[in-house]
């Protein structure tokens, strides 16, 4: 798929497949278009060219009702949580359950408690979202994302701006969710420690294209100068220009 904003091509014929049950991490520098990529996967953005196929359906070729059915099979966690300010923590998590299921009040209450347990925030239902720290907001966002027991989980920069302890907690929560639910998972980050902790495959988005798409160990040792620059955090290596197809994995 291709996406432009004005004259700037953010995604340039990006071709990426995520098999069912796999955990893919997309790495890339800040502002490279990682969030734009993940927003295409759930239909928050429409590609200018190309298509996004989810569970066999072209997201933008199906009627909007079908698109919403597909979205219900996703759980998405946003950069800063994107919690609804007007609702409490419990109401945020209950939001998709009330709208898309016929659960009774008691069942909703139990499922909310279960989701909060899963993100290590038990008993937080009554808290206002304004009372939460950055890390807690992300975890409540995770809890809301898993409320409908989705088959696909998307994490957009789950640890950006957090301290190492909170980052570790979030990585553990993501890993536990992965083991417990075995979803198809796409995580967007620029944090290598997060990537290698949760990925079964790592892709590097660079200058609008997928520069590398490898298992974590191979990614770490890739000779591609752009990948090496990213892994080592050495910008001087970026200047050694080599086309991705010229690099053997």
């Amino acid at each position: 798929m291709t996406k432009r904003f004005g004259a700037k091509v953010v995604l340039d014929a990006v071709d990426l497949t995520v098999p069912v049950g796999e955990s893919l991490v997309v790495l890339g520098k800040s502002g490279v278009g990682k969030s734009v990529l993940v927003k295409h996967l759930i239909g928050l953005l429409e590609p200018d060219a190309g298509s996004v196929r989810v569970l066999g359906d072209d997201l933008w070729a199906v009627p909007s009702r079908r698109r919403d059915e597909l979205r219900r099979r996703f759980g998405m966690s946003f950069q800063e949580g994107a919690l609804f300010d007007s609702l409490s923590v419990g109401e945020n998590i209950a939001f998709p359950l009330k709208r898309h299921t016929k659960m009774t009040k008691g069942e909703v209450r139990d499922r909310v408690a279960e989701c909060l347990e899963a993100v290590r925030l038990p008993g937080m239902e009554a808290k206002r979202t304004s009372e939460l720290s950055g890390g807690m907001r992300r975890r409540v966002g995770f809890a809301r994302a898993i409320a409908l027991k989705p088959e696909i989980l998307l994490f957009d920069e789950p640890t950006t701006g957090l301290d190492p302890i909170n980052t570790d907690v979030l990585v553990r929560v993501i890993t536990e969710l992965n083991h417990r639910m075995n979803p198809t998972m796409v995580t967007i980050t620029h944090d290598l420690s997060v990537a290698f902790a949760v990925a079964e495959r790592v892709a590097l988005l660079d200058e609008g294209r997928i520069r590398a798409d490898l298992p974590p160990r191979e990614f770490e040792t890739s000779p591609d100068p752009r990948v090496r620059a990213f892994v080592l955090g050495d910008s001087s290596l970026e200047d050694a220009r080599t086309a991705p197809e010229e690099v053997s994995p």
């Binding site: 927003k39 928050l44 946003f78 800063e80």
Partner: peptide
């Protein structure tokens, strides 16, 4: 506007609303 810039509107769409 605040909901838009804090991605709450995107979250609504992602929650099929």
């Amino acid at each position: 506007g605040t909901m838009r810039v804090t991605e709450q509107i995107d979250a609504l769409v992602a929650l099929a609303t």
